[in-house]
Simulated scan of single mutants.
Amino acid sequence: MNSPFRVVRLDGPGRLPEALDAIHRGFAQYRDRLVPPSAALNETTDSLARRLLDGAVLLAEDATGVVLGAVCAEIRADMVYLDRLAVPPASRGRGVASTLVAAVEAFAAEAGARSVTLGVRLALPGNIAMFERLGYRESKRTAHPGFSEPTSMSMVKVLSARLL
């Protein structure tokens, strides 16, 4: 079965405004809900351009080129950090997020990484459950600066030998 969308790895700054828009729309629901606030809402095209230097920015788009979601991937030693996974509300429920995660895993394998890691807020159990369904497991809990109790967890997925 053909997917109704495809994933594109950006190779320059031309489509960064579209990635930024998807990230801002995807994280907008958390404005004034998450404490501390999500830094995703502070992303700019300049900050995304820096992410191109250390990894990748990927877009999911439909057949007409309309952006359905975005994600960033940063190479860190022998692992890749998945960040800013964003699917705006109108595009949810279609497998966009899981397809973007799979694209990051493929990018990681191509880069020779042994695992993919990410951070997720404890206040977002639906996001945690989605990553668990995709094979990610909790590796540790951390507190944002100024907090005494954990506010987020790190999750990791070891890439299988067949991907390496």
Rank of each mutant, 00 (worst) to 15 (best):
A28V: 02
D46N: 09
E18I: 00
R84E: 06
D78W: 08
P89A: 10
L48P: 07
T64N: 12
L82W: 01
G69C: 06
P89G: 05
R84L: 12
V87G: 05
D21Q: 13
N42V: 06
E61S: 01
A73M: 06
G55L: 00
R51G: 06
T117V: 14
A90L: 15
T117H: 14
V80W: 06
H24S: 03
V120P: 08
S115D: 14
V57Y: 01
L58N: 04
R50T: 09
G95A: 11
G65C: 11
A77M: 13
R94W: 08
G69F: 02
A56H: 05
A86R: 09
P13V: 08
Q29R: 14
G112N: 10
V35G: 07
G26K: 00
A19H: 00
E110M: 09
T117Q: 12
G69D: 07
V80A: 08
A63G: 14
D62A: 02
A73K: 03
F107T: 00
R92H: 13
L41A: 05
A70M: 09
L52M: 07
L68C: 11
A97N: 12
A19Q: 01
D54E: 14
L58D: 05
R15K: 06
S91E: 09
S115Q: 11
P13E: 14
G112V: 04
L58W: 04
A39E: 15
A111L: 05
S38I: 03
G26I: 00
A63R: 15
R51V: 02
G95V: 08
P89T: 02
